[in-house]
């Protein structure tokens, strides 16, 4: 279901013009694209041109960022089935907000494929594609710690900032911890698909892995909290975030994206 954290982090540590853009600008760009795509009318064939323009823009940025093609393909391949699920049903459904349907094909058992249903399904899928591309671009060019500090600079409440800072700090620790558990299980030939052992036993082993992860992360939390207390942490403590000015090139990227979105809206 997930791409591994290490693969994600490898891409975010590359150096490119896109990676250099300020995190705040990238968050804003991503949100603008997603909100614009979601806000488009649900039944309009022109959507595809507008969304197509945005998609081309995002893919250009991905190429500029020198992301590995196999990595991008893998991320799309993981994400797409999720979005495909409900969109694929649409041609067979009678959407409540559509008055008249044009039946294209009639299938046995009373199923009908309608033109409107196909359009609606395709619009959903196109919106999803653009949104997921924007998220892939953001998450592959910005490290998680930079995302959190950028969100902090944009006014994320300090409690949430602390929560996310701690979470992002320990994600990789626990990811490696789970990796070690998995290696240890593999060396003992443990496999969830193995049919030669009782199912109950396999379920229990998975359950023990989960509870071990839970207890270990809880205990890590306790240790971290106590060492923070030793260093003078209290409820009024702030996570320090240095000031960072938005440069001219950052402002240019932001305005250029707005121009692209505006152009998609006006020209098409």
């Amino acid at each position: 279901m997930h791409i591994s954290l290490t693969e994600l982090e490898r891409e975010t540590y590359k150096k490119s013009p896109v990676h250099r853009i300020d995190g705040r600008i990238k968050i804003l760009i991503t949100l603008a694209i997603i909100v614009y795509a979601v806000a488009l009318p649900r039944m309009d064939a022109l959507n595809f041109l507008k969304l197509g323009m945005l998609e081309v823009y995002i893919i250009t940025l991905m190429l500029l960022a020198r992301l590995e093609l196999s990595y991008i393909a893998l991320r799309f391949a993981i994400a797409l089935p999720v979005g495909f699920g409900i969109a694929a049903f649409q041609p067979f459904l009678k959407q409540p907000f559509i008055a008249n349907f044009t039946v294209l094909y009639t299938l046995p058992m009373g199923f009908e494929i309608t033109r409107e249903g196909m359009l609606f399904g395709a619009v959903i899928l196109a919106k999803f594609l653009v949104c997921i591309s924007a998220v892939i671009l953001l998450s592959s060019t910005t490290s998680m710690s930079e995302l959190v500090s950028s969100a902090r600079r944009m006014g994320l409440p300090k409690e949430l900032a602390l929560l996310f800072t701690m979470m992002v700090r320990y994600l990789f620790v626990f990811w490696n911890m789970l990796g070690r558990i998995r290696t240890a299980q593999k060396t003992r030939c443990f496999d969830i698909w193995n049919k030669k052992v009782p199912r109950r036993w396999t379920l229990e082993q998975v359950g023990y892995t989960i509870s071990s992860m839970f207890v270990r992360s809880y205990e890590q939390g306790e240790r971290t909290y106590q060492s923070m207390l030793c260093r003078g942490y209290s409820a009024d403590a702030h996570v320090y975030v240095g000031r960072k000015n938005i440069g001219l090139s950052d402002a240019f990227v932001l305005s250029f994206t707005m121009v692209i979105i505006g152009a998609a809206q006006i020209l098409v």
Partner: peptide
């Protein structure tokens, strides 16, 4: 006490343990 740092760390653990796959045919 103030449990915010602890919950931040625990959330990381929760994220990782949600990647543990369990075979459906179990």
């Amino acid at each position: 006490e103030d449990m915010i740092p602890l919950f931040g760390v625990l959330a990381a653990g929760m994220f990782v343990l949600q990647t543990i796959n369990i075979a459906a045919n179990l």
